[in-house]
């Protein structure tokens, strides 16, 4: 297995290569406004560092969010197109799960349950609760921190969203963004456990968002489809506005 993993659902542009045993090369750049520019050069750099050609990659893993949409789509489009061009499967990873895996397997891992929260902007967070590094216990959601205060009270939390709202997430800890290595390791572990999708499996699947298929218990590889969690901001125009002066 040679797995290329990427995620653009948080301010970090994250790329890592995993050979089935360990992470071979990785890159992480935090710049919320330049995902589109940074991602491909990062892929090129990671492959060069590992001395590998893209054509040798056997699997693609991509963060499906939740995350701010424009950045999120950069990773998904890139992964989708790589998968098509190379004829290899593309596996989706919930970005919160990758962060939870990083936190739960770190030296600072909490003993009990914890929370992952990323910045959803508009004074909201994307978040989920975890029993441990590999077990999510709530579906990914988007909420105002104050509205979920009692559900996260007393729990350690990881992710930039937790640092933004210390009044709700009293025990915020690193990492803030998805570490490239954790994303790749999480996907490699799941693939080794036989969870992978066949090539083209994600796109051929139902056009519904992955969220529909990923209930609280679901915590593994997903179809490579975006977890938007919000509907587009769009208003049906009110009645025609009269231009004649009164």
């Amino acid at each position: 297995m040679l797995l290329l993993a990427l995620d653009t659902a948080t301010p970090a542009v994250t790329v890592a290569l995993h050979d089935g045993v360990s992470v071979v090369a990785a890159s992480s750049q935090v710049d919320a406004r330049r995902h589109g520019e940074l991602l491909l050069p990062a892929v090129d750099r990671v492959l060069a560092e590992a001395g590998v050609k893209l054509a040798e990659v056997t699997d693609i893993a991509v963060g499906v969010g939740p995350g701010p949409y424009t950045g999120l789509r950069v990773g998904l489009t890139t992964a989708d197109t790589f998968g098509f061009a190379l004829g290899v499967p593309v596996h989706g990873v919930c970005t919160l799960d990758a962060l939870g895996y990083a936190f739960g397997t770190s030296a600072a891992a909490p003993d009990g349950p914890f929370v992952v929260a990323t910045d959803a902007r508009r004074k909201e967070v994307y978040w989920a609760r975890y029993e441990d590094a590999r077990t999510r216990t709530t579906a990914p959601a988007v909420d105002r921190p104050a509205d979920i205060a009692d559900r996260v009270a007393g729990l350690p939390s990881a992710g930039a969203g937790a640092f933004l709202y210390p009044e709700v997430f009293a025990d915020a800890r690193e990492p803030r963004h998805v570490p490239a290595a954790a994303l790749a390791a999480f996907a490699a572990e799941r693939l080794a456990a036989g969870e992978g999708l066949p090539a083209g499996g994600g796109r051929a699947a139902s056009p519904a968002s992955a969220a529909d298929e990923d209930g609280p218990a679901g915590h593994g590889l997903l179809p490579p489809r975006p977890l938007y969690l919000r509907r587009p901001d769009a208003q049906v125009p009110k009645n025609y506005k009269v231009v004649t002066p009164r």
């Binding site: 589109g36 991602l39 061009a85 190379l86």
Partner: peptide, 13 residues
């Protein structure tokens, strides 16, 4: 950005 990302990935691959 969707088209540019796809084109870059496709050309690179």
């Amino acid at each position: 950005l969707v088209g540019v990302s796809a084109a870059k990935a496709y050309a690179y691959a």
